[in-house]
Amino acid sequence: MKNRLIVTLTTVHGSRQYSLGQVARYILFLFVVLSGISFFISNWLLVKTTDDLADLEENHQQLSDQYEMMLGTQNLYRNELDQLSASLAKVANERDRLQADNIRMGDKLQEENLRFGELNATLDASLSGLETLLNVDTSEALTSERLEALTMMANQRLFMLNSIPNGVPIQAIRINDGFGMRMHPIRKKRVMHHGIDFKADVGTPVYATADGVVEYSGNKGDGYGKQVVLLHNYGFKTNYSHLNKIEVSSGEFVHKGQKIAESGNTGKSTGPHLHYEVRHLYQPINPAPFVSWNVANFDTIFTTVKSIKWASLKNLYPLNQIAQP
């Protein structure tokens, strides 16, 4: 009996004894040991898996936050481009769909083939129109590379035209005086005129000619009356003077085309008008080339205004994706 294990089970009906031999004891012992090891390993794996899952959730949240921040920045510059290229993208998608259908159905899609050709012609005409608008050489090839290059160029030009002053700041009656030496209407002697005078009735809306921040709004008592000074990208600054009403305050961000004031006749002025200046690094520049600058004659500003080192712009992102003049 010394080599046997006696197991006693007691119930309401009495007690029973079971005798296990040495082999059975080893098997039972091994089962208990393996069960214990399995229990501890399972718990360790559960704890480790829980920690890993927590790390993954934290990393996922960080990536989500970064993505939302990057998405917000990109959307700022893509809104205007999306409006410009929406029709082109729609036609290109339709063309690709019809091309895939044509491969699968072969000769049975003669009618669709005709439609596909019409869409190709429409897309080609649209791309040619965009190339004409951008004043670049037209291409005969209808390729995705062509569309991508035009989209990137349009995006860059829109970015520049939003960042650097361009266009007219007011719907004026006419231009009274331009940039340069002139006979001062009040002082009655020849002095340098640092801007352009736009004749306009009192209360005519005045608009920001580029995105920027309001450096000053008010009346300095220097003869310019009520004025707004905007600070723009790349060292540019614009000044809007002799205003009747100011609608922005110092430190406020403004966007191109935003109404910032109304024209008037304040300060040393002989009649209602808007005095408009463009400066770069505090030096006055003739505003005329900037007033006529737009997406169609985009390259002209880089050769007309020679006092600015435009060549260094090509090293800036996102402008370095396609070389600028």
Score class of each variant (00 low, 15 high):
L30A: 15
L30M: 14
L30W: 13
F31M: 12
V32T: 14
V33M: 13
L34I: 14
L34E: 09
S35I: 06
S35M: 14
S35N: 15
S35T: 13
I37P: 01
I37K: 06
I37F: 12
S38Q: 11
S38R: 09
S38I: 05
S38D: 11
S38A: 15
F39Q: 10
F39T: 09
F40A: 14
I41W: 12
S42Y: 15
S42F: 13
S42H: 14
N43S: 13
W44K: 04
L45A: 08
L45R: 06
L46F: 11
V47M: 02
V47F: 04
K48S: 07
K48H: 09
K48N: 07
T49E: 00
T49L: 01
D51W: 03
D52G: 01
D52W: 03
D52C: 03
L53W: 02
L53P: 01
L53H: 04
A54W: 01
D55M: 04
D55S: 05
D55H: 06
D55W: 02
L56A: 09
L56V: 04
E57N: 05
E58Q: 10
E58W: 06
N59D: 11
N59Q: 13
H60Q: 11
H60Y: 07
H60I: 02
Q61S: 10
Q62N: 09
Q62A: 07
L63A: 09
S64Y: 06
S64M: 07
S64T: 06
D65V: 05
D65R: 07
D65A: 07
D65Q: 10
Q66W: 03
Q66Y: 05
Y67F: 09
E68P: 00
E68G: 00
M69C: 00
M69R: 09
M69L: 13
M70C: 02
M70E: 06
L71E: 11
L71F: 07
L71P: 00
G72M: 10
G72Q: 09
G72D: 07
G72K: 12
T73F: 07
T73I: 11
T73N: 08
T73K: 11
T73E: 13
Q74L: 12
N75W: 06
L76W: 04
L76H: 04
N79P: 02
E80V: 03
L81T: 09
L81P: 03
L81N: 03
L81R: 02
L81F: 06
D82A: 08
D82P: 01
Q83H: 15
Q83P: 02
L84C: 00
S85G: 05
S85H: 11
A86W: 10
A86I: 13
A86S: 15
S87R: 12
S87Y: 10
S87L: 09
A89G: 06
A89C: 02
K90R: 15
V91P: 00
V91H: 05
A92L: 14
A92C: 05
A92D: 13
A92H: 13
A92Y: 11
N93Y: 15
R95W: 10
D96S: 15
D96F: 13
R97A: 15
R97N: 14
